[in-house]
Design a protein around this nucleic acid. Structure first.
Length: 931
RNA sequence: GCUCGGGUGGUGGAACUGGUAGACACGCAGGACUUAAAAUCCUGUUCGCCUUACAGCGAGUGCGGGUUCGAUUCCCGCCCCGAGUACCA
């Protein structure tokens, strides 16, 4: 029979599903391996050809690991809470649960067609109450915890309140709000419950905090910063105002240092780790207080260069700084107000366009250097950000370029502080070399000595201390949306209380419309009679998109049967599967999902629920698949109106044309199908063409894949035409997994042909299945063992494209050798099985093996003996230029190779009578003759 | 601006620790089979020069230098493309 991919693929997909081939269970007799894909949000558009790229790679890896004897956990699920379903609900009134359900069905159908070896019995959906029950449960654990800096981990809030009742607030080292109270044990015990609760909230790992949000009344929602452009919403262009509201927050900053340290222990792409490092933004320095002349106020600054403190010639505070009004003298009032007005306008425009301009205003006040009492003017300027550090900096023009520019512009002094500083009249010099000058107590000291001396002095004076500053902020956790997890909290006298654990899950209530209420409450405010114990108001915001995805890999560890148990995953399962060995997904989640997941994981570990400090040991980013748009060129007539004439790409410059997107599915290798084009849109029905070489060649451009650009390629179409095995191989063949690349089907024929050739190795010319039991020849064994080794090496370094090429080479070689020997083909088949599971299952069965056992067959053992050569065609180069090849026995050692080469006539001819100055011989590699 | 990727034929890409640049595939050209087409198979295909041909010569991995017997690979400087980030004190 010929290669009937449609029948074969359907048959085996059904087989795997019915026999539950890929259902796994913890098995202590086998080493575990956990391969995870970032689960998709099931959008209405379905899968396009870019989605499965990572899934195919992880599936190949999973199947390979099974062949290598591992017990492989390879699950899939859906991140099914999210905005598009809600947006659709607002427009159509359809419940997002229904939309989501339908979309999931489409995704599942599409995924099944590709032949993945997922254990679907472990599927998760974040919007499933049985799943979000545990998302809510984790929220409750966070609420019931504080971060003890003494033990450097999260602990139950009970240990904190018992500490308070025994020792008061002194000696507590915690990550907490800034406005915590100081009290004795007696004072604590005398407080009423509400006050205690209020105080504890300042320590909890999830807590209420007043935050400023981008409120869009027209859309009835809060927008993320990147959804706001030029002060209006990106979608729709509605006005956006800053609104203060109480929001749930997560104290991720408590974990800042562990999140940073942990990066060194995991095998992730360096750019990704770098992004997380920058996001966390740790800087080590000192905070220093400056007294204000004629005032009891102090200005606190953060600096990473406290050693430059004697070079400070002015302070700069952010225009939004709380002391601005107080520090402004009557004479400067106008200047300051004008400046603030300008700044405000500027931030509404594009502030980033303006990083070079120096601007600022003098407040009229002076601060005093805490170490030498020097009088330094206080300025405001928008280059100081209110949100970072203390919103105030000490300016050292000789060492910092921004300060230097500012000093030059406003004619402020530039003080030299290190003898190694050069040309400070032309630019700042931030060196730490040399010894200090003009620097009072640190004169003559080096950088290291100076820092220690100054910190000690500042601490003695009570005017400063060493400090570590992070850029990362606590994460806002509330969303004013409907389609998300309800927060398991109700309010009693304005104080948040958790519902009890046995009341979980707190179900998402029904609402009449998915819009905010008239008073601006989130959609949950519309739910009727939705009260805790019929009395107390529930929290009306829902959790953000990242909540459900911050722990889902643990839920997969629980089998279907175990999910009824009262835990997010059974202890034994967590002890067995531990962590994710390989995680594949896009780099766009670098500072969102991947950071929050690490945070929750560390928290769960602190409480003893999980065993590993880091959840994802190894991570690979798959590149994005971009769209590849095709264009036709419509000729424009003298009046500038489009005609019915279209000119081929190569001739378009001879005409006045306008490019029009054309559906990539009616273009093959840039050649337009003219008939299909006439049917593409009614207006093209009578289209005429100017051809080149009898064909219409389309133009090409790489753009995002989107419907409007007619460049979306659906995997279903590819599977229909070539089959899933071809799709799998082709997506890998396209190039390195981690590289972004445009999708084009130009090479897919080659992959399909390869599979047919592979099929034909097992068949005679009449396409009858025939394999020989003869012993293989040396050449055949060599070909086989080359591929055995190559595929092993390639898979381990995620170089899937090169193994596909190598398979092609191997099949070409065996074809040449007319090899149909079982001993060779059966082993080759196993190596190919992870890439093309359907065709190999079929042939495996035809070879007489028990159906379905291929998935757990043994990967063939590489034997290097078969690759040993006794001769090598040495490239002979002269002065590094390759001239010829010469077969030389590999038994010859270097001096003999030299003799052998020089004895050769052709070599002598190349030497042209000259005698070599030198000869380089690398055994088994190269001969280079230097003349 | 900073940080990180990346620039190799007409195209996607290969070349593992410096050692035959362009594997494999697409496309293209020519040929075989066929009444014809599709499918399949074979040959050629980096560029330039030279030659009837066999062959030969030269250049060549973004650009300019360097190290080396030898550089796509290492070093220095520059250009271009992509991603992230945005005055972080």
């Amino acid at each position: 029979m010929d290669y009937q991919f449609r029948d074969i693929e359907k048959k085996w997909q059904q087989f795997w599903a019915e026999k539950k081939t890929f259902k796994v269970a913890a098995d202590a007799s086998k080493p575990k391996y956990y391969v995870l894909d970032m689960f998709p949000y099931p959008s209405g558009a379905g899968l396009h050809v870019g989605h499965p790229l990572g899934y195919i790679a992880s599936d190949i890896f999973s199947r390979y690991k099974r062949l290598k004897g591992y017990n492989v956990l390879h699950p899939m699920g859906y991140d099914s809470f999210g905005l598009p379903a809600e947006q659709y609900a607002i427009q159509t009134g359809q419940h997002p649960a229904i939309t989501t359900e339908n979309n999931i069905a489409t995704y599942r159908r599409q995924l099944d067609q590709i032949g993945f070896s997922f254990d679907w019995s472990r599927e998760v959906r974040t919007s499933d109450p049985q799943y979000y029950k545990w998302t809510q449960w984790i929220f409750m654990q966070l609420f019931n915890a504080w971060y003890n800096l003494e033990t450097d981990k999260a602990e139950s809030i009970d240990t904190l309140s018992s500490h308070f009742s025994q020792h008061g607030s002194t000696s507590v080292k915690a990550v907490c709000d800034e406005d915590v109270l100081t009290f004795t044990a007696a004072q604590w015990n005398a407080m009423d419950e509400a006050d205690k609760e209020r105080e504890l909230l300042k320590y909890r790992l999830t807590f209420l905090k007043e935050s400023t949000v981008n409120w869009c009344a027209a859309l009835g929602t809060v927008l993320a910063n990147d959804e706001v452009k030029d002060g209006v919403s990106e979608r729709g262009g509605y006005p956006v105002e800053q609104k203060k509201m109480m929001q749930w927050s997560m104290r991720i900053t408590a974990y800042a240092d562990r999140l940073l340290q942990g990066l060194d222990s995991i095998d992730w792409p360096e750019p990704l780790k770098e992004m997380q490092r920058n996001w966390i933004g740790k800087s080590t320095g000192a905070s220093v207080k400056f007294n204000v002349e004629g005032s009891d106020k102090q200005i606190e600054v953060f600096t990473t260069r406290v050693d430059t403190i004697f070079g400070v010639s002015f302070l700069v505070i952010a225009p939004e700084h709380e002391l601005v009004a107080e520090l402004t003298t009557a004479g400067q009032k106008q200047d300051i107000e004008d400046y603030i007005t300008v700044t405000k306008k500027k931030s509404e425009l594009d502030r980033m366009a303006d990083t070079k301009t120096v601007s600022g205003a003098f407040t009229g006040s002076y601060a005093l250097n805490p170490l030498n009492g020097a009088k330094i003017p206080v300025w405001i300027a928008d280059y100081v950000l209110a949100g970072y550090g203390t919103g105030a900096v000490m300016a050292v023009p000789s060492g910092d370029q921004r300060d230097w520019l500012f000093a030059k512009h406003f004619d402020l002094p530039i003080i030299r502080i290190l003898d190694a500083q050069q040309n400070i009249e032309e630019a700042a010099d931030s060196t730490k070399e040399g010894v200090y000058v003009n620097s009072d107590i640190i004169n003559g000291l080096t950088y290291k000595e100076a820092i220690a001396t100054l910190i000690q002095r500042l601490e003695e004076l009570g005017m400063g201390k060493a400090k570590i500053q992070y850029r990362m902020r606590d994460a806002i956790f509330g969303r004013q949306r409907y389609w998300g997890e309800p927060v398991p909290v109700y309010f009693e006298n304005g104080l948040p209380r958790l519902i009890s654990e046995d009341e979980l899950p707190l179900l998402l209530p029904e609402v009449d419309k998915y819009l905010p209420t008239e008073d601006g409450d989130p959609p949950l405010g519309r739910a009727e009679n939705w009260k805790y114990k019929d009395t107390y108001s529930y929290e009306l915001s829902t959790m953000p998109g990242w909540a459900g995805s911050s722990w889902y890999w643990y839920r997969y560890m629980a089998s279907q049967e175990e999910r009824a148990e009262n835990a997010f995953a059974p202890k034994e399962a967590i002890a067995y599967w531990k962590d994710v060995d390989l995680y594949i997904g896009g780099s766009e989640h670098a500072t969102g999902h991947l950071l929050y997941s690490r945070f929750w994981n560390k928290f769960l570990k602190d409480l003893g629920y999980v065993t590993e400090e880091e959840p994802f040991k190894k991570l690979i980013n798959q590149g994005m698949i971009q769209g590849r748009s095709n264009f036709v060129y419509r000729v424009i007539n003298e009046d500038g109106v489009g005609t019915q004439l279209f000119v081929s790409h190569g001739l378009k410059d001879q005409y006045k044309t306008s490019p029009i997107h054309v559906d990539v599915n009616i273009v093959d290798n840039e050649v337009l199908d003219l008939e299909k084009f006439r049917k593409f849109r009614p207006e093209f029905e009578h289209a005429e063409f100017i051809l080149e070489n009898d064909r219409y060649i389309c133009g090409v451009e790489v753009e995002k894949m989107s419907k409007s650009k007619f460049n979306v390629v659906n995997p279903d179409d590819i599977i229909e035409r070539y089959g899933a095995d071809t799709l799998r191989l082709y997506e890998m063949f396209l190039g390195p997994l981690e590289q972004s690349k445009p999708w084009n089907t130009n090479g897919i024929e080659g992959v399909f042909k390869f599979l047919r050739k592979f099929w034909k190795l097992f068949h005679n010319d009449q396409l009858e299945f025939t394999v020989s039991e003869e012993a293989p020849t040396r050449a055949e064994l060599k070909s086989l063992h080359k591929i055995i080794r190559k595929v092993e090496e390639d898979i381990e370094r995620f170089s899937f494209n090169t193994s596909v090429s190598s398979f092609m080479i191997c099949v070409n070689e065996l074809n040449e050798l007319k090899c149909n020997k079982r001993a060779i083909l059966e082993s080759l088949l196993v190596t190919l099985a992870p890439y093309a599971p359907h065709i190999t299952e079929e042939l495996w069965a035809l070879l007489g093996n028990e159906a379905g056992t291929l998935s757990f067959a043994a990967y063939p053992t590489f034997n290097p003996d078969f690759l040993v050569e006794d001769e090598f065609a040495y490239p002979i180069s002269i002065n590094g230029k390759m001239k010829m090849n010469l077969n030389i026995p590999l038994t010859l050692e270097v001096p003999d190779v030299e003799k052998f080469v020089l004895a050769n006539d052709a070599v002598q001819k190349l030497l042209d009578g000259k005698s070599p100055k030198k000869m380089i011989v690398v055994k088994g590699r190269i001969v280079n003759i230097v003349l």
